[in-house]
Design a protein around this nucleic acid. Sequence first.
DNA 1: CCTGTTAGGTTGCAATATGAAACTAACTAG
DNA 2: CTAGTTAGTTTCATATTGCAACCTAACAGG
Lengths: 156, 156
Amino acid sequence: MLDLERHRELLRQCSIAAALETVGERWSFLILRGAFNGLHHFEEFQSTLGIARNILSNRLARLVESGILKRDPDPTDRRRVAYRLTEKGLDLLPVLLSLRQWGERWVAGTSSNPVLVDRATRRQIAPMAVRDADGRPLQRDELEWVDRSELKDKQA
Amino acid sequence: MLDLERHRELLRQCSIAAALETVGERWSFLILRGAFNGLHHFEEFQSTLGIARNILSNRLARLVESGILKRDPDPTDRRRVAYRLTEKGLDLLPVLLSLRQWGERWVAGTSSNPVLVDRATRRQIAPMAVRDADGRPLQRDELEWVDRSELKDKQA
DNA sequence: CCTGTTAGGTTGCAATATGAAACTAACTAG
DNA sequence: CTAGTTAGTTTCATATTGCAACCTAACAGG
């Protein structure tokens, strides 16, 4: 009970911890990346990711339960199930892109494929960056952590 | 050998997978969040995060080996070690912020503390968003995945 | 100097998670 | 009907996590 209470306190204090409860491990991230890249069906995920079937089944179920993916049975073939990103799941795009760009720069050392472009201009999206309220990218020394009570103006 | 080869192929193909090799699990993320929030010492991480000492030791060592944290022994007290983010580690800020904002919106349902502000204006940073090359936020239906060879212009 | 405290670990072992491979149920196509 | 397909489920060996105790080196104070 004390553990549960501390757990809840942690969740209240930190949204990262809350987020990590649902997506905080490697296979979930990779499944999400697959979903963003157009994978839908169990076998697609399994063969593309090379993930054990029981782990895939477990993670898919968890992502569905968390509301990140939804399970769409195919009316024309009752065996087939499409797993699709929900609004909640789609909102993870900045996370995935940030992670990808970091990986490109610091781990893989190469750019990867496919790339995300602005449909209208066909130009690649900008690198994910911390920006001020007007959209100007901020350098790290321009940033500061403050207590929420010290905010200059209330922002939604 | 075949597994190793496939593993390498996956890393080459996807920078997210490469990134997840180093930060792809819950405790690493939470340690990084702690580091961004000013934690430095073993005991600080341990008591703040409530993480098992052996897991903390293992993760810290891994993050140091990956070049994300560096290990700074204190010259005035040789027992003490400060773990600090490297350039590589600091570059994970967009990942952590994206994740945090996602968690605030979809999991915790509340805003968390501390918050990141522009030092000059004291205004809160903008939500992480996917933006075009000029910095304009893009909606999801404005985005498209293309093969790198189809890029309209070469961008660094 | 000795004793107690501190800091950063390490160790042993139980519980839990992962992964390989086989199996199953339901469905579809010919 | 048979054979193949799809999405899982199960079994069991291996790996990882977590609890709690322990250890070592360094320090502080009397």
